[in-house]
């Protein structure tokens, strides 16, 4: 638990002296500012925050934060962050990663970090493209997508990050557009509060190599009709007129209109992010219309550090060894004169 800070930070306290070098108009700027604005809300001391990234445009992130940070190697940030957190559980540790970084080269680490449930936060900048290497398809690029390495269209079907994460037993998964800074900040604060590994997928627009890939989901004029922003305990209602909702029809989610065919608000499903069974969360992350955003899953579970800590205390209490000498001179020793 981080101590509550007396001095109130502002976002400026979290700006580093390094010039930000993303392309103008890139959503990465939005995420950066959302983070700088979220941190003062978290009540965590600046020196207790660590950002760790891999390689990619998105992975430049730590350089721009006036906290501790490490820009590591491609795909390996989850391992590094795990080591940091296990070494010092007091720190607030953030992994900043791209779709390629997390799910191509780092795919193995990505699923294992989620499985273990260390109290880390992972922000996945999903632009469905490799930005830094100038525009090859990624594990989230859609079939048919024309990129520098798929000039005739991508033939490899993509991962849905939420589906993959829940399959790996992620306890916290949120999805949010890259153009809604306030919502991003709010979700970051919630992720910070959550004890366990939290994964936030940001639908991030790359203006250079995959511009507009989320236009029909995230654009201001369509967003309310195309997205369902989920909140724990609230009915799954969406649409500009708040008249659309989700019900369960056999084994599928179905979009209905409130007021039509005898449907009332009472028929609409209520979102339970804290449910242990991920079945409904899986259905939600797979929905193509509407696209589920907000905190989809937030299931409280024991963290790895808690298990480790309890075991260590128990072993310490039952052990006759406190110093290495005790061990070295224990058991079968003999004297030579």
């Amino acid at each position: 638990m981080e101590a509550i800070v007396e001095k109130k930070y502002t976002y400026k306290d979290f700006e580093s002296d390094q010039e930000v070098r993303w392309c103008p108009g890139c959503d990465d700027y939005v995420i950066l500012r959302s983070m700088q604005k979220a941190l003062p809300e978290m009540g965590v001391k600046k020196e207790e925050v660590v950002f760790v990234s891999g390689i990619g445009c998105s992975s430049r992130f730590p350089y721009y934060m006036n906290t501790y940070g490490m820009h590591s190697i491609h795909g390996r940030a989850p391992g590094i962050a795990s080591g940091i957190k296990l070494a010092n559980p007091k720190l607030s540790v953030w992994v900043m990663t791209g779709d390629g970084d997390a799910m191509a080269i780092g795919g193995n680490h990505f699923i294992h970090v989620l499985r273990r449930n260390i109290d880390l936060n992972i922000v996945l900048f999903n632009n469905e493209i490799y930005g830094l290497t100038k525009g090859q398809f990624s594990p989230t690029s859609v079939v048919g997508q024309k990129t520098k390495s798929s000039p005739y269209g991508n033939t490899q079907p993509p991962f849905n990050p939420g589906e993959l994460a829940l399959g790996a037993n992620a306890r916290f998964f949120a999805r949010i557009g890259g153009n809604v800074p306030k919502d991003i900040s709010q979700i970051l604060v919630e992720a910070h509060k959550f004890k366990g590994t939290s994964l936030i997928e940001v639908l991030q627009n790359c203006v250079i190599f995959n511009d507009g890939c989320y236009n029909n989901i995230t654009n201001k004029d369509v967003k309310e009709d195309k997205q369902i922003y989920l909140e724990h305990g609230k009915p799954m209602i969406f649409g500009k007129n708040r008249d659309k909702g989700l019900i369960l029809n056999k084994l599928k989610l179905e979009v209905v209109t409130i007021g039509e065919n005898g449907i009332t608000e009472a028929d609409i499903l209520v979102h339970n992010a804290k449910e242990k069974d991920p079945t409904m969360h899986q259905m939600l992350v797979r929905l193509e219309y509407p696209v589920a955003t907000g905190i989809i899953r937030s299931f409280d579970d024991v963290t790895l550090e808690e298990r480790e800590d309890a075991l260590t205390k128990q072993v310490k209490a039952n052990s006759k060894f406190t110093k290495t000498n005790d061990l070295f001179f224990s058991g079968e020793i003999y004297m030579v004169n």
Binding site: V52, M70, S82, A87, N108, T312, L327
Partner: peptide
């Protein structure tokens, strides 16, 4: 040797093994 507070982490592969150690060294 948990009694000495040793933190031993069996990782998912050798890369994560060294990565976690690098993180611990940083910390």
């Amino acid at each position: 040797h948990k009694h000495f507070g040793v933190k031993a982490f069996q990782a998912e592969d050798e890369i994560a093994g060294i990565a976690s150690a690098i993180g611990a060294a940083f910390a």
